[in-house]
Design a binder for these strands. Sequence first.
DNA 1: TTAGGGTTAG
Length: 825
Amino acid sequence: MLRLLIGGRSLPNCESNYFSKLLHSSRCLHTSYSPIPNYIQTSSNESRSHSREIDIDLLFHSSTNTHLAKRLHALLIVLGKVQSLFLSTRLLNLYSNLGHISLCQQTFDQISEKDVYTWNSIISAYVRNGIPSDAVNSLYKMLKYEVKPDFYTFPPVLKACRNLNDGSRIHSLILRTGMEWDVFVAASLVHMYCRFGLFDAAYQIFENMPFRDMGCWNAIISGFCQNGKGEKALEVLEEMRIEGIKMDSVTVSTILPVCAQMDDMVQGRLTHLYVVKHGLELDLFVGNAFINFYAKFGELEQAQKVFDSLVTRDLISWNSIIAAYEQNNNPDRALNFFHEMLMYGFKPDLLTLVSVASSIAQSRESQSSRCVHGFILRRCWFEKDVIIGNAVVDMYAKLGDVDSARKLFYKISLKDVVSWNTMITGYGQNGLANEAIEVYHTMVETEYVTPNQGTWASIIPAYAHIGALKEGAATHGRVLKTGQLFDVFIGTCLIDLYGKCGKMEDTMNLFNEVSKTSSVPWNAVISCLGIHGHGETSLKLFRDMIDDGVQPDTITFISLLSACSHSGLVEQGEWCFDVMQQDYGIKPGLKHYGCLVDLLGRAGQLEKAYNFIKNMPLQPDASVWGALLGACRIHGNADLGKLASDRLLEVDPDNVGYYVLLSNIYANAGKWDGVNRVRSLANSKGLKKTPGWSSIELNNKMEVFYTGNQSHPQCDEIYGELENLTAKMKILGYIPDYSFVLQDVEEDEKQHILSSHSERLAIAYGIINTPARTPIRIFKNLRVCGDCHTATKFISRITEREIIVRDSNRFHNFKDGVCSCGDYW
DNA sequence: TTAGGGTTAG
């Protein structure tokens, strides 16, 4: 061991005490105690007379952060030791451990006579710091300088090759040097070939090894695990067991993520027993792997137990427990752990912030979103990894702040497919289907990303939302080309698309094709049948689902209840509500209560619905009172309507829809003072009525009409057509229902207002621009007004066309003067 | 002094 003589006037008298402090400093990452400045002060000429022997090795060990490492570097310069090959190589390794690759390079360049240690050190520094190409180049330079590689040289070089996807040259070099059966070299080769997907080559090397240590076993297992061959990994594990070789902590932490991936809880639990029996539970990697394992199965108690039992915790332990709660819908707990982690002095990394952003989105803590954004911005993490940008875009979108989401999205320089999917989903979730479609088109045009399952799952619902059947069907074609048709999620999205576009035949065909082992496709088809008014068929499918042994969930019952509601199946709906609780132990949530109120209310049982609300064990929310208010609108009950809206304005004062409904009720009853009161209340709150719009797809383009639109190029033709139609309708007995006109104006004007409702503009546009007697499909963002409903029935008879209108609530299929909903909606 | 095989991700 190299020792130095340094003077020590101001050194502590008690050397053992001093060293214990020094050692202490090397163990505590967060200490502010720095022994090195003392050395520099004490190394002046005058103090050298009182020289002492100091172990420089300890100084290397105590340099646990960049500041201390630089001090040590300065000390070596002061002592004139920087030219020492041994010390400068150690310094190089120190910088490498601390992640300072440029300082490594500087130190390396200053060394004039480099030996094999020096070359090995710089190679491993490049690998560790993520510059594999420089690592390989260094090997070739080393050969040029005629320094012979040794057993230490190749493992890191092979690791570099793994990331460069090229290893044949190095492999032949290794063969020439005769080092291929060194356990470290061989293990590296095995792992490299697994990464290349050359599993047979990897296994062949593994099989031919004259000697295998744990590292070799782990290399083949982890090689299989990390490259999608989990089952093969388990086979090797079995081989290991037969040969009587015990798993170590590395094996365990490698195998656990695979158990989770393969949904193999049993294997994971057995591994846990093994770990306890063999005393591996104190290993940090093992503990962390178990936290993640249990979190994936939603077993938070177990995950928490493992976390609590850890003797030491690192950043990954904290990240894992935060992610565990975040991914299992407990964002508050996740955020608590984040704060606790900060209190313990841990510095969060990029992955911590990914979980934090998602937690904030879930907990609707919009105030914190800016802090998170700023925190990441200050650290320049957006440039470091696209995952964090995606997470923050998702956070903003989930919080409803689409503007911020979009701004950040366009700032992400290297968008990956997830970035695009996140933005498309974000728009979709906020009801901006047209924007979602626009982003999707840009994504397809950019060509550097290939749409994947996530893309289909985000774009198809957007098409379904606005009823863009042709574009949706074209996407279906694209999905078919990729061979992803039978994926349940995409299949369900398509079922929903065709269902919402009125293509029930296609819906049922698709439903027959997809795998029906989960409740997801059942729920979709039950809900589609519901909005078409096929309540009885929905109930039949529910029975089929039970016969098939598929467990219904809370969504199944929401779909069923709403199907019953649309078809006026009151008794059956009440039966569903009971069965849900008694047979399936599902506690009704607010949505179920809302559906039942809707069911009773639509059927005219307003008092029963009101009593039902009064006896609810949950605090009724806006959807429940909203259902009652809607029913009051249909049945013209102004008193109960007023009561419902009073409650509504307490729980959700900013929702314009309720003001509109109430003003509708008043208008219907001719109470114009009530209408004005509601309108001025809404105005005083700065609320604007959601503009009604309808869309129609023509020549693969969506044409959108807002109520009262006067700027369309075919405006005159459209209004002319409507006038024409109204005249014919009146001959056939159409009487306009002015109660749907909210404004207190003259009758002529009321007629004009009714005729400029967006759905009528879209229908007239369709009539003008499509061949006679072909069907017309319209989508409306709000509910179709009663007068338009009546008018459309007449129009379908006059034009001999099928007119399919999908509104925000359900489906209307007008044919020969009648509507499929039987005027019950 | 230098090396292989390990845990967290939208």
